[in-house]
Amino acid sequence: MARSATTSDVFNAIAEAQRRQIIDLLSHGERSVNDVAAALGIRQPQASKHLRVLKEVDLVSVRGSGQQRLYRLNGEGLKPIHDWTMTFEHFWEESFDRLDEYLKQIQSKEKKND
């Protein structure tokens, strides 16, 4: 399946530092495009562009509120990133927790059988 890199891949979407800043900002609550632009010190069209990329990969959703459109972080959209971190450091750490348990169990069993 051919996929366009930035628009459909969550990881590419967050590879850009300003977009990561936007995610952090939105984790504190809904913001308008002007709020985002002001917080990051960038121009409004630039902020719109970043928000569009984040929206395309479902990291943010938008709702109209009067004249304003408010952007918010979409937790479900972040899940692939979360799962990804689980696959590496966290993944191994978690497996090793279970290995630790397993080794304790098997050793206490062997002692009982002696």
């Binding site: 590419n12 995610i23 952090d24 972040l78 979360h82 971190t85 450091e89």
Partner: peptide, 22 residues
Amino acid sequence: KTFEDAKTNVQMGFKGTFDQLD
């Protein structure tokens, strides 16, 4: 680069976002 960036993402304060996501 993806591998590198992903490592950086984790180090760059995404931890709090993940806690919230959890």
